[in-house]
Amino acid sequence: MPLRNLSRPSQVTSWLHEWGEQLGEPAEMILIGSAGILWHAAAAGRDDPLPENSMDVDPVTDSEAVAELAYDAMIGSEFEKTHGWHVNLMPHFALRDLPEGWRSRCVKATYRNLTVEIPSVADLLSPKLKRNEPRDRAHQEYARVLGLIPS
């Protein structure tokens, strides 16, 4: 069973720092899903836990080095045992679920050799709200309570 211990914004930023240090040369990725929302919470200075723990983070990348790190962080890996969650690389096609123009609304953050693009909170929530499962609505409420989206 995959571990499901991702809940705090600081877990996401710690992981990004870790990969930024591990990469031997500059690389980029896009972070989508609930980990992206957690990143925004961390950027707002909050470390409130998600209402329901997550089992993974969802990056998209063209970087061979980032993909290699991600393959070493899959279900069952040492990474998962250490962190309590795993990395689930998403295909480029997943970005098509985001609203038009999402790229222009991204925030960029650099962690030594790793540059991460994070879509806006509203854009990250958009595919979740189309799916509209209880967990998705809980993520929307989490973002609202933290002031990441308008009430």
Binding site: E64, A67, E68, Y71, L89, M90, P91, F93, A94
Partner: peptide, 15 residues
């Protein structure tokens, strides 16, 4: 459409 299948193709090609 199974995202995991497309991910294995995309990142398999990369690696």
């Amino acid at each position: 459409f199974v995202p995991d299948d497309w991910a294995r193709l995309q990142y398999g090609r990369l690696l």
